[in-house]
Structures are given as structure tokens and as C-alpha cells.
């Protein structure tokens, strides 16, 4: 997994609440058995004017010029600014895969849906929760200044604006540690093999019906 320590990049403002995972990456692209290549289909239904098809070459598809990511000033954006309940809906990890593949390293919003929030950390993307007033301010500043950039500093747990204003954000210690170091969860968990085996032995004694019933 990619490390995330500090990132500065152009901000793309996605000004709508309850952006769901079907909107982030529509279902037809979930048929892929790979983890990569989802970036060109990110926000497919609002980004293009035609209907997207899995495995399609998107180079010549008609663009929805009104959509934020199609506007020249946001071309190199890597910080997504969003509204409440971002990422609601399904558990598809294809949503963070698509954001990451497109080039987003961090998403800032007043709130996130739980599963999406969790999935981001598994893919080197930092979801940052700031309160609604601050997010409003960032939307306003972003609209006013072309090339508006934010610096998201995980070590300091701060978002820094171009004028030097700093906003603190919360992040769980364990998640921060994994992201700062790009750690693989499975390796970490397997350091506890003895604990897992001991728990399992006890669990089997207490609930023997949970073992051996389902056989391939």
C-alpha cells in the first residue's frame, strides 16, 4: 500500500451531498476481476454524456462539460472536496480504487459513510473529516481562486490552506500508523497468530456447531 504522510494538491470541489458509491463507480465496471484501471470510469454517469461500458476505451467519449473534473482548472486535481455522507451505499472497494487510480490522494468532507471511510485506509487514501462550516469556507475559497491547493498533513493531523490557515482533524491512531508506514494489515494481524489460535480453540469448545458443518 502507498504511504500517506503529507500531500499538497489542486482541489476539485464536488458540491453535492450524499454522493453514493454507484455514482463514484457504476456497477457495470464492477465486473472487472482486477484492482486497477478504474480511474477513467470514476463518476462515469455524470462525467460522460454517453452510457459507459466495461473495458471501454474512454478517449473519444463525449464529456459532460459542466462536470467539475472536466473543467480545465481542475485537471491536475488530487484533493477532492465533498459534502456530507460521501461514499454512502455499497461496500464496493472499487470506489476508492477508482479515486486512487484517477489520482486522488485524499477526500475532505463533513462526514463519510462507514464502509467507504474504512476502505479508503486500505488503499492509501486519506479521508479527512472537517466540520461543515470549514468545508463551506474551503468551497468558497476554492471557487474564488484558480489553482487552489490544500496541504493535508497526516503527521500533524492538519489541513493547511494557501493563506496558512490550519484546521485540525481526527484520525484513529492505528489507521494513522498504518497509512504513515504503508503497512499491510494482513501481515500485522498474522503477528498475532497465537492469540487467534488460542481464541479459536476456546471458541470451538464453547460452540462446536460452528466448526466442520460447511464442507467444500
Amino acid at each position: 500500500m502507498n504511504k500517506f504522510i503529507q500531500h499538497t494538491g489542486i482541489v476539485a470541489p464536488l458540491d453535492r451531498a450524499n454522493v453514493d458509491t454507484d455514482m463514484i463507480i457504476p456497477k457495470q465496471f464492477l465486473k472487472s476481476i482486477k484492482r486497477s484501471g478504474f480511474g477513467v470510469y470514476l463518476f462515469d454517469e455524470i462525467r460522460y454524456l454517453d452510457e459507459g461500458v466495461a473495458d471501454q476505451d474512454c478517449t473519444n467519449r463525449p464529456l459532460n462539460k459542466d462536470f467539475v473534473l472536466n473543467q480545465a482548472r481542475y485537471q491536475q486535481s488530487s484533493v477532492l472536496l465533498a459534502r456530507t455522507n460521501f461514499g454512502c451505499g455499497s461496500s464496493r472497494e472499487h470506489a476508492p480504487w477508482a479515486l486512487e487510480d484517477y489520482g486522488f490522494r485524499t477526500v475532505i468532507a463533513p462526514s463519510f459513510a462507514d464502509i467507504f471511510y474504512n476502505n479508503c485506509f486500505k488503499n492509501g487514501i486519506l479521508p479527512v473529516v472537517l466540520n461543515e462550516e470549514i468545508v463551506d469556507q474551503l468551497f468558497t475559497e476554492c471557487a474564488a481562486q484558480e489553482g487552489y491547493e490544500l496541504c493535508v498533513d497526516l503527521e500533524q493531523q492538519q489541513v493547511v490552506t494557501p493563506s496558512g490557515e490550519r484546521f485540525d482533524f481526527e484520525v484513529e491512531e492505528f489507521r494513522k500508523h498504518c497509512l504513515l508506514n504503508g503497512l499491510d494489515d494482513i501481515d500485522l494481524t498474522l503477528q498475532n497468530v497465537d492469540d487467534i489460535s488460542a481464541f479459536e480453540a476456546k471458541h470451538k469448545q464453547q460452540s462446536p456447531w460452528l466448526f466442520g458443518a460447511i464442507k467444500g
Binding site: 484492482r35 461496500s91 472497494e93 464502509i115 474504512n118 476502505n119 486500505k122
Partner: peptide
């Protein structure tokens, strides 16, 4: 529900 990394 969980994501694919968690399935693994």
C-alpha cells in the same frame, strides 16, 4: 459488509 481488502 466489508470491502475486498477485508475479504482477503
Amino acid at each position: 459488509g466489508i470491502g475486498t481488502s477485508e475479504v482477503e
